[in-house]
Computed example of a mutant assay.
Amino acid sequence: MTADSSAPARPSPAAAAEAPARPERELTEPVSLTRPNGRLNTDAIGWARHPIVDTSGVGRGGGRNKRWEYWNVITPTHILALTVSSIDYAAVHEVWVLDRVRQRTWGRNATVLPARGVELPPRLEAGRATARAKDLEIDIDEVENGTRLRARIPGAEFDVVAERPDGHERLAVVVPWTATRFQYTVKDVARPARGSLTLDGMKREVPAGQSWAVLDHGRGRWPYDVAWNWGAGSGISNGRVIGVQVGGQWTDGTGSTENAMLVDGHLHKIHDELEWDYDVSNWRRPWRVTGGGLDATFTPFYNKISRTNLGVISSKTDQCFGHWSGTYRIDGGEVVEFDGITGWAEDVHNRW
């Protein structure tokens, strides 16, 4: 991995791999993320197969609250993405579309100071999320057996339903840094998607059975300086629905990870911190992510580069889109092979 000299220090992957992973606690009953005083509820530390953590205490008063919904939809020909977020002092939104064949993009970012024109539910699937800014509209609504995603910017709009099949599991994790700095994330991969996309007045189908949606739902209170990796992928390989969900850096040393594999809708939690090998100075070079029974290679075909530097606030993101392949050994010994699983792997460093 090529290091960013400005990134915060973190344990080496090799050192992390030497320590045996301690199984994280699985949450099976609803629990509040925060106590009445706004501090982390230690009873919420762990992971779950469904979004059972109540985050309504995040967003009350000041204190580095960060709330967002990020959705990504990958079709055979296009990639669609939207972000609705409130980070206390600002509302930050984005709509982005990539034509995979022509490598042409449509995009609109909006940073609204102070935060206004944004609505986010107190917890996942407990209401709608909306964003309004100049030349940008986003609506996220829960519908029967799924989530409807609508976005509009100049030259591009889409209307997609991310279906939620019966029995579909997703990874929900509480990551504790301190009693006052913590994050609840839901990473929901391999959601079948269908709908429509309109670009420059020409309507296209988001074909059912060939399109997949991924959600990153976040609620928490973050440190100022943080770096992370996130990798996700969805698709069908060898007749099985495969979802890849891996992360790193930001969870190191907390006792929590956001690592899992989804196989035919069933979540297999990976408790280990994974080893990431990549080079953002040569983004076409394949990435390797290994550990906890996973041996995965990610081969990029496009890099979405984002840079922001407003002095105290800065962000550096390389989000590479491509294909996942490899093997995953399930507890009990079964080895699942997968190939051609489309998704992304990213390297992010934020001061926010």
Score class of each variant (00 low, 15 high):
256 S>W: 01
216 D>F: 11
153 I>C: 08
175 V>K: 07
7 A>I: 14
309 N>K: 10
148 R>Q: 14
255 G>R: 03
193 A>E: 00
161 V>A: 02
242 I>G: 00
52 I>Q: 04
248 G>M: 03
308 T>W: 02
254 T>R: 02
166 D>L: 05
33 L>M: 03
316 K>N: 14
311 G>S: 04
72 N>E: 14
290 T>N: 08
59 G>M: 06
78 H>D: 10
71 W>V: 00
258 E>Y: 00
150 R>W: 15
138 I>M: 05
183 Q>T: 04
350 N>M: 10
21 A>L: 12
82 L>S: 09
216 D>Y: 12
109 N>G: 11
262 L>A: 00
213 A>M: 06
77 T>H: 08
312 V>T: 03
30 P>L: 02
295 D>F: 05
130 T>G: 01
21 A>H: 06
149 L>W: 13
61 G>S: 03
281 S>M: 12
329 R>K: 15
36 P>N: 13
243 G>R: 03
251 T>Q: 03
158 F>Q: 06
109 N>R: 15
107 G>D: 10
94 E>I: 15
19 A>Q: 12
335 V>R: 09
196 S>N: 03
66 K>R: 14
127 G>M: 07
80 L>K: 11
65 N>T: 08
101 V>R: 15
220 G>K: 09
125 E>Q: 06
150 R>L: 07
305 I>Y: 11
120 L>I: 09
321 F>G: 04
76 P>G: 04
75 T>E: 05
272 D>L: 09
22 R>P: 13
184 Y>G: 03
273 E>V: 03
172 A>N: 01
90 A>V: 10
283 W>R: 06
123 R>F: 12
97 V>M: 03
201 G>H: 09
27 L>M: 10
114 P>F: 04
112 V>N: 12
273 E>L: 03
229 N>F: 08
45 I>C: 09
296 A>Q: 00
121 P>G: 08
284 R>H: 11
81 A>V: 14
325 S>K: 11
165 P>N: 01
208 A>P: 08
10 R>G: 09
214 V>L: 14
224 Y>L: 13
101 V>I: 12
177 W>N: 07
7 A>Q: 14
272 D>M: 08
113 L>C: 13
209 G>T: 07
263 V>G: 04
325 S>Y: 01
9 A>T: 15
53 V>P: 03
31 V>A: 02
64 R>I: 06
250 W>V: 06
88 D>Q: 15
351 R>A: 13
16 A>L: 06
88 D>F: 10
273 E>D: 10
345 A>C: 04
337 E>G: 15
48 A>K: 05
230 W>T: 12
57 G>P: 14
192 P>W: 05
350 N>G: 11
333 G>I: 13
183 Q>N: 12
137 E>L: 08
86 S>A: 14
99 D>P: 07
74 I>V: 09
40 L>V: 02
218 G>W: 02
248 G>I: 01
34 T>I: 07
336 V>H: 09
70 Y>G: 01
120 L>K: 06
322 G>A: 07
183 Q>E: 08
90 A>Y: 10
124 L>G: 00
189 V>F: 02
135 D>M: 13
214 V>R: 10
304 K>M: 14
115 A>V: 01
309 N>A: 01
307 R>T: 12
314 S>H: 13
257 T>S: 05
156 A>E: 07
290 T>Y: 01
256 S>H: 01
151 A>C: 08
349 H>V: 05
39 R>P: 13
351 R>L: 11
350 N>Y: 05
203 K>Q: 12
